[in-house]
Design a protein around this nucleic acid. Structure first.
Lengths: 141, 141
DNA sequence: TAGCGTGTTGAAAACCATTATCATTGCAGT
DNA sequence: ACTGCAATGATAATGGTTTTCAACACGCTA
């Protein structure tokens, strides 16, 4: 129940916050821009202002509920924080975003940070590439 | 000589382009925003418009002379491309940026991209952390 | 369950970095 | 030097995001 998440995050339970959370949860593993969240709310007949979407997303970010990503310097994409922290691979042609996670790299980053005299808080890895034609075993997609 | 770089990049040699290149070269290994480049030009009594700074930097990027980074989604930072491609570690308190390079990670990213069906063009690794107090052996800095 | 205070909301204006516009200027090749 | 076309500068426009501020609603208390 979303209400719980909000309370745990120390945020007052309000309609807009619930609605935004719902949208994010309904599209788990997707990366949504504030504008996209806003559109989905409108489509769902939830009257929430764009400014509020931004405010709420920013609050969620502070509360650790979502992460804000800047893959291309344009609009930010927001993603619900689940347990595992992962890296991203972005198709430069389609903008398609996938996630991956690699313990070896994680380990190396920790080591490197330490070597350089830093305490690592967080990190971002984005791979830009072209998605190869999917080898269609039978029915392509 | 900067003139050479510009010709090689297929760019007409103009005063603004030379000046911007000089600024970038004069601060090698630093990451400058367009505004910072602009300010340095003004300080050097080089009359170059901000719009031109942006244009020139964008052209340099296309020509492969500089890279544009979006560490925080705010203003972009530009950095002269030297030989080695490197990753960045940013101090979340001071904004200080350092570079590092790790062959193991590079290798893993290539492998991972392939596994996921991508041809890697490029990648960005940014580590955010706190720079530990420098252990001052004698004279701190 | 009603009343109240404070935090939240919405609409619009403000903001900031960046890009487009367009008349003027200056390279580069003859 | 002359000329064409690309480059420049000042300013307006743009896009994403944040701020402003009056109206409103959550959650606590009685």
């Amino acid at each position: 129940m979303s209400t719980q998440n909000l309370k745990e995050a120390g945020l007052k339970v309000t309609l807009p916050r619930l609605r935004v959370l719902e949208v994010l949860e309904a599209s788990e593993h997707r990366h949504l821009s504030a504008e996209e969240v806003y559109k989905r709310l409108i489509e769902a007949d939830s009257e929430v202002g764009l400014a509020t979407v931004y405010r709420v997303l920013t609050q969620f970010e502070s509360a650790g509920l979502v992460s804000r990503r800047h893959f291309d310097g344009g609009q930010a994409l927001f993603e619900l924080n689940d347990d595992d922290d992962h890296s991203h691979i972005v198709c430069v042609k389609t903008g398609h975003v996938e996630e991956f996670n690699d313990p070896i790299i994680e380990q190396r980053l920790l080591e490197i940070s330490e070597e350089l005299g830093y305490t690592m808080n967080d990190h971002t890895i984005v791979v830009y590439g072209e998605r190869n034609k999917v080898k269609t075993g039978k029915a392509g997609r």
